[in-house]
Design a protein around this nucleic acid. Structure first.
Length: 806
DNA sequence: CGGACGAGGATTTTT
DNA sequence: TCCTCGTCCG
């Protein structure tokens, strides 16, 4: 127990040891927040609290995994009984256990944003609102999402006359009806979207006090990370669970609240003391990460925000003074990128550190003449669009880099398609999954056929799947048989084998194998990665009781990961969770400031420090500016040794060149900490569109269309599985007699055949392929090189292009 | 199906 | 300017 606390400073120690009752830990950037959180949990357990009674909530899987690992290294195997994870994943477990109480099947599906938007789209179409731009599915859905996060259900919405008035004014009178249908459809499909995973917790607790009571008793100690990022529903759930025992510990930093756009409420952390008047507040003010310059500059900047009252803290650096922040001013965005790349080159110069050997020392405070590993350098920007210029400049100098973008691994088509089948197997009511895969791989089920199924479903008020099963259509029959066949085999094999079986038998793998392109290879690789995750160990079931089986390493481990659980995990996972394994290690990192939160680098470049870009605001709303300022604070405090800030006097924005004014944030950095000044430059004086320095001779050059971004070279791919299916098809193009094969002389097409086309004239057949998953041999893909150079080589489908054989 | 084409939009992102 | 999405067409 002593050893847990030993290494902590007094403030940290206080925050760790006093684990009874409500606590608010205000943790400045780099103040050892995770350490305190994990030590506190370890300390609790060492003091006799059962791991089983601890609930620890984070926002990202990454944070949860990191915490779990650190706790495990402190207390070992017992840590697995701690209920730890993201809000969504923990609540998912609870909702699975309680699904029946709120009218959901235990195997309910999770809709990601794409599913949700496409459901909204089909509802809009159904309501003949399809092409009305007041009802763009994306916007409608984001409104629905916002409402749910504020606990405004369709019923609540309907009661409020103001909402109706507002909608009428804006010409969105149908919104409520869409919202209603969306909610009803999700429920009918046995599906919850991301917001439902939170909202339904409130529904569950409100409607079933006994259930709430049960979980309250279970989670006698609750910890919440990044509390400043919680939204209203999350706040309510946490509060509901903590009421009574009051053992709630929230950790956060109001200065780093940067997610209001997705519903985060900084008031949650600011008002914690009001919610729990007996709360004790601990402030972690010593920064272990950065130099005095960086902490000092960041403090100065954030001080411009309206004070945060009780939570106000005074961060100080434990380290050396460090070098000043360097300001890089450029005339153009192109030049800015060059300057940044140049500085990076200088930092990382010196041959052998980057030769692929482990290389440069990474000890803090190492002599500055030593080359810095690329991985210790980051370029941060406010918007992703700024990455391009930086990328090009880095490429020109052969500096390796990697880019983080927001999109999810599970947004990839190949992944969604495979998941679609798996989802359908688990939950046949999932209409979105049905629609996604019913004709993929193509099996000739078109709009008409599908329309009939949909009509039947609507008429009898059953799911698409049920309607499909009843359908007489032969193609639909083939589809349902395929899925039923797969379902049957599910019990016979392990999850991993089953996944593979689905990938192969549906033909998805065949499609990508046949492609033979880099994209196809990467798709196969992604599929492989997905399948591999099916072999993982399951988490401890939420209802398992740690106390009864406690101690034995094998305790409660018999159960294998179920498909339902796996699908749940997968739906709640993102790209971020599965990166840095590869040899992509020693690279400069390019990312948005938002995604850099929580990370640290020795050297950080913050680019595009110009008004209307950073801060990026339309009007001058002070709450918005304050959030932007916090964002800048986050950016600055990522650096351990040195920060660089850069700006350009002119920049291409949406294709046209615009003059830029330096960001107010740069001026807010105390001059003592800044090398180079904004004020004394001609660049600043002119302002506006008028006189920008000597802008008569701009140094920018016309944009070249860059080579396609290829920061991640396609890796060599081992075929996922020898693909018998595709081979068979292509080797035996003649079709088994199924009564529908009266193709006009398909076999006449062969490489070398001379053909004529109505529009393109004459040509020679190069290649003939059967389309994967084709329902009939009529679907031939024919590549023809036309005699006329104007038309060149084209790929045609025999079904459509009326080719004449000469 | 998949390629071609035109319109419209273009923060920040997790789950 | 450039990328994404939806529609049209062979």
């Amino acid at each position: 127990m002593e050893n847990i606390v030993e290494q902590l400073n007094p403030a940290q120690r206080e925050a760790v040891v006093n684990f009874e009752g409500p606590s608010l830990i205000v943790a400045g950037a780099g103040s050892g927040k995770t350490r305190v959180l994990t030590s506190r949990i370890a300390y609790m357990i060492a003091s006799g609290v059962a791991p089983h009674n601890i609930l620890a909530l984070t926002f990202t899987n990454k944070a949860a995994a990191e915490m779990r690992q650190r706790i495990e290294s402190m207390i070992g195997e017992r840590s697995r009984w701690i209920q730890m994870g993201t809000f969504h994943s923990v609540f998912l477990r609870i909702l699975r256990a309680e699904a029946g109480r709120i009218g959901y099947p235990p195997a309910f599906t999770i809709y990601d944003t794409t599913d949700s938007v496409s459901l909204v789209r089909s509802i809009c179409r159904e309501m003949m609102l399809g092409d009305n731009e007041k009802y763009k599915p994306k916007n409608v859905f984001s409104k629905i999402s916002r409402l749910k996060n504020d606990l405004i259900t369709p019923a609540v919405y309907a009661e409020d006359a103001e909402f109706a008035a507002e909608d009428r004014k804006r010409g969105t009178g149908q919104f409520l009806e869409i919202y209603k249908r969306y909610t009803a459809q999700c429920k009918a499909n046995g599906a919850m979207d991301f917001d439902d995973l939170l909202l339904n917790m409130v529904v569950l607790f409100k409607g079933h006090p006994d259930v709430l009571e049960k979980w309250r008793e279970r989670f006698r100690y609750i910890l919440v990370d990044e509390y400043q990022d919680t939204n209203h529903v999350q706040y309510l759930i946490v509060k509901a669970l903590a009421m009574g025992h009051g053992n709630i510990c929230v950790v956060g930093d109001d200065s780093q609240s940067i997610y209001s756009f997705r519903g985060a409420r900084i008031e949650n952390i600011l008002g914690f003391k009001r919610d729990f008047p007996s709360a004790r507040i601990y402030k972690l003010e010593q920064n272990y990460r950065s130099t005095q310059v960086i902490v000092g500059a960041a403090n100065g900047v954030i001080a411009r925000n309206e004070g945060s009252g009780e939570l106000k803290k005074e961060c100080f650096s434990a380290g050396e003074r460090g070098e000043n922040i360097k300001l890089l001013r450029a005339y153009t965005d192109r030049e800015e990128a060059e300057m940044v790349a140049g500085e990076i080159r200088t930092l990382g110069r010196g041959g052998n550190a980057h030769g692929g050997l482990a290389g440069a020392s990474s000890q803090a405070g190492s002599s500055r003449s030593e080359p810095v590993p690329w991985s210790e350098i980051a370029v941060l920007y406010r918007v992703n669009a700024l990455s391009r210029g930086i990328e090009e400049a880095l490429r020109r100098r052969d500096i390796p880099y990697k880019i983080y973008r927001g999109h999810s691994f599970f947004d990839r088509k190949e992944i969604k398609d495979l998941l679609g089948y798996l989802r359908l197997v688990v939950n046949p009511r999932d209409d979105e999954a049905f629609k996604r895969v019913v004709n993929y791989p193509a099996r000739g089920i078109g709009e008409v056929t599908l329309g009939r199924v949909a009509a039947a479903a609507r008429e009898k008020d059953i799911s698409l799947w049920e309607a499909a099963v009843e359908s007489e259509d032969r193609k639909i029959g083939a589809f349902t048989e395929l899925v039923q066949g797969l379902s049957l085999r599910r019990a016979e094999m392990s999850l991993y084998e089953f996944g593979r079986e689905v990938a192969v038998r549906t033909g998805i793998i065949g499609i990508y194998r046949a492609e033979g392109s880099a994209e196809g290879a990467s798709a196969l690789e992604n599929i492989e990665e997905l399948l591999n995750s099916m072999a993982a160990e399951p988490d401890v079931a939420i209802e398992e009781d740690g106390e009864t089986t406690d101690g034995g390493a094998a305790g409660g481990q018999a159960a294998a990961l179920t498909l339902e659980d796996w699908l749940g995990n997968v739906a709640l996972m993102t790209d971020m969770d599965s990166d840095d394994d590869t040899e992509n290690r020693d690279r400069v990192t390019l990312m948005t400031v938002h995604s850099a939160k929580g990370l640290e680098f020795r050297h950080v470049f913050i680019v595009g420090l110009e008004e209307e870009l950073f801060p990026l605001v339309r009007d001058g709303d002070s709450t918005e500016i304050e959030e932007e300022r916090r964002l800048f604070y986050v950016a600055l405090t990522r650096a351990k040794e040195r920060s660089f800030v850069s700006m350009a006097g002119s920049r291409f924005i949406h294709g046209s060149m615009a003059f830029r004014r330096p960001s107010r944030f740069v001026r807010e950095i105390d001059r003592r900490f800044l090398d180079g000044s904004v004020m004394d430059d001609a660049m600043h004086r002119g302002g506006g569109g008028g006189g920008f320095g000597r802008a008569d001779k701009p140094t920018w050059e016309p944009r070249k269309v860059g080579t396609p971004t290829a920061s991640y070279a396609a890796r060599n791919v081992v075929p996922v599985v020898p693909d018998a299916r595709f081979r068979k098809v292509s080797a035996a193009p003649s079709r088994p007699a199924d009564g529908e094969t009266r193709t006009p002389a398909n076999s006449d097409f062969a490489p070398g055949t001379r053909v004529a086309h109505a529009k393109f004239g004459r040509g020679t057949v190069e290649q003939v392929e059967i389309m994967a998953g084709a329902a009939s041999a009529a679907d031939l893909k024919i590549t023809v090189t036309f005699d006329s150079p104007a038309h060149g080589r084209k790929t045609l489908l025999s079904k459509f292009a009326k080719l004449e054989i000469l």
